[in-house]
């Protein structure tokens, strides 16, 4: 599903964010990206979403080389990739349902599809009774569930999560991880950058560790270490 071949990303000032990374992630896998702050986790995620392009190497997503993808094709790539932010990035003036519907509306989905899919996904994330609330009326955990619903409402093949539990307490984080696990069991590939040792050690999924941009460990059923 995702394949990186000798990928290097260098920022201005010769800052190497990812160095010669080669990784192969299969369909339906759940992968933790771990490492210290500045190790390149976020850049790794942004490369997969084509927010960044590599200086060297090739990135394949669903069999397509996205490193050389034309700019006009990028939006169509992103429709197959859900993205979860650490700070949720919900639109404060829109209701929960409108926030989720927004993701479908802006890719041109018809209204009847939106009316059907939004309640279904909110049911999945356990927020069916909060559809008309605005984000400020929700707890942090609930806001992150809305963010997950928005990322998953278009049933993407891949879900990228950049520190999705970074702003949540441990108990709420467990709930979020259960939800991501449930989504992963539908066949969706999940790549999650995290600092949360407890979550990684509990879930025992594949762990890729980055250190100064280099992949220093790639372990099946790994721990944070």
């Amino acid at each position: 599903m995702i394949k990186l071949e000798n990928v290097t990303k260098v920022y201005k000032g010769d800052v190497v964010a990812v160095r010669d990374a080669t990784v192969d992630i299969g369909k339906g896998e759940f992968v933790f990206l771990v490492g210290q702050s500045g190790s390149g986790k976020s850049t790794f995620i942004r490369l997969l979403n084509r927010e960044e392009t590599p200086e060297h190497g090739t990135i394949y997503v669903a069999g397509k080389d996205i490193s050389s993808l034309g700019a006009w094709k990028v939006p169509y790539l992103r429709r197959n990739i859900g993205y979860i932010f650490q700070d949720f990035k919900l639109l404060p003036k829109k209701t929960v349902a409108e926030n989720v519907a927004f993701a479908l509306e802006v890719i041109g989905k018809p209204r009847h599809v939106i009316r059907k899919q939004v309640p279904a996904i909110l049911e999945l994330v356990g927020l069916a009774d909060k559809m008309e609330n605005i984000p400020t009326e929700l707890s942090g955990g609930e806001q992150q569930r809305v963010s997950i619903a928005r990322a998953f409402v278009n049933r993407p093949l891949i879900l990228l999560a950049d520190e999705p539990t970074g702003n949540l307490d441990p108990q709420t984080s467990v709930g979020i991880m259960k939800l991501l696990d449930r989504i992963n069991r539908t066949g969706t590939t999940v790549v999650m950058a995290t600092h949360d040792r407890g979550i990684v050690d509990t879930m025992r999924r594949r762990v890729i560790e980055l250190d100064r941009g280099q992949v220093v460990r790639d372990q099946a059923r790994g721990v944070y270490e």
Partner: peptide, 9 residues
């Protein structure tokens, strides 16, 4: 958000 979810330019 629009860019992330795949809205065209």
């Amino acid at each position: 958000i629009m860019k992330v979810v795949g809205a065209t330019n």
